[in-house]
Amino acid sequence: MISDQLFFTGINVLLAWSVYIGLVTGSLSFAQGAFMAFGCYGAGVLTVKFGWPLLPACLVSAILSAMIAAVLGYPALRLRGVYLILVTIGITFCARVALENIDYVGGVGGFGGMRGADLNAVIVAVLIVGAFLLWFSFSPLQRICDAVREDDRVASSLAINVTFIRLLGFSAGAAIAAIAGALYGHYMNFVRPESFDVLLSIYVVLYVVLGGTNNMLGPLIGATLMTLLPEYFRVLAEWRPTVFGLAILAMLLFRPLGLLAFRLVTAHASVSAPRKSGSL
């Protein structure tokens, strides 16, 4: 069904953006599965067990997810590179196993009864998050994040609190992933802890790698292509992991910055500013 496909595309775009916003501050996170699960179960408990409407449940679970990310991130984000990848994979595993052991939300058997999310809800979410990212892309904050990503030590010598910026990116990513999770759960009506497996986190990161890590459009393109294309080409659907894996390999080799590699410039000297002409 076309609306199903568009819905999952929207969810994947949100997840890809949630990875992107962490990457902007230089942290590659494989913990997105965990935050998505938290958003899904958190919002689900609020709507199913407490009878909240979806919107406030979504927002509250996003905020809580961001707070958890901040607490986890404070020790975790001191680690870089391979170590950070390992820790974030660990977070995803822990979240899944923890949920499997909480009988209040159904344990291994799964958790059901959430409803109320439809295609329109995910479209609104994508538009809001997209608008925010666009606004962010041209702001001084984007520039500060770029500085932290490119050379954190120089950034801190320029009075930028690198730890704070990294936590900000990690938490914002967790919040967006939680919203995606909440919408996913309330669309599917029923989820299991294994729906938020580490494989999901890996796929989401690879969407971003494919699309491009330098601007907000890259993750959008990557996630959309990888979700929609298999729906229209049967070969792709059948061989999805293989085609996807080979595409990633080719991309890393020949276009390491992704399909859309450009970086948006955050400031131009205004025309009125005095300029010297001459030497060059």
């Binding site: 001084p140 520039r143 500085a147 009075a159 704070f164």
Partner: peptide
């Protein structure tokens, strides 16, 4: 990867001190 102007702007103290407010 930044322009010359952006490099200089990164150091602008009101933004560096209050990154969220810079939005």
């Amino acid at each position: 990867r930044m322009t010359v102007l952006e490099n200089a702007l990164v150091a602008f103290r009101p933004f560096a001190d209050h990154p969220l407010r810079s939005l």
